[in-house]
């Protein structure tokens, strides 16, 4: 049952993205920016938490979930440390994803060469 909810939530978030790409002039890079910013705002407004409770990874794996992580990290850090937390909390919460993307990006560049696709 959890997995069905995950599938539906994640799938739906992707369908919204696909419709935006095809129906508007938004490029995928802009979709990424839109999703993470929307995630931060929705999460701060308390609207994304319920989606995560319903969809679990279906809501955390999409980039809106990354925004949710940033916002929740910031808010709890502000509760603990005050204003300093506004600057440290978001990055601390999202550190795993960012460090992984940077490091694996670098590692892949070390190991592989880009190829043209002939098919």
């Amino acid at each position: 049952m959890t997995y069905l909810k995950v599938f539906l939530t994640g799938g739906l978030l992707c369908v919204i993205g696909e419709a935006l790409i095809l129906k508007t002039k938004l490029t995928p890079a802009r979709i990424l920016v839109l999703y993470i910013t929307a995630g931060v705002i929705l999460s701060a407004a308390g609207l994304y938490g319920p989606i995560v409770r319903f969809g679990a990874a279906g809501a955390t794996v999409p980039l809106t979930g990354f925004g949710h992580l940033l916002a929740q990290g910031t808010i709890s850090a502000v509760q603990e440390k005050g204003l300093l937390g506004a600057f440290t909390g978001g990055m601390q919460a999202a550190a795993g994803g960012i460090a992984a993307a940077v490091f694996f990006g670098f590692l892949t560049a070390v190991c592989f060469k880009p190829r043209p696709k002939d098919t």
């Binding site: 790409i21 995928p28 880009p114 190829r115 043209p116 696709k117």
Partner: peptide, 8 residues
């Protein structure tokens, strides 16, 4: 885009 960038 880069060659390996996933783009439709």
């Amino acid at each position: 885009f880069p060659l390996e960038y996933g783009n439709q």
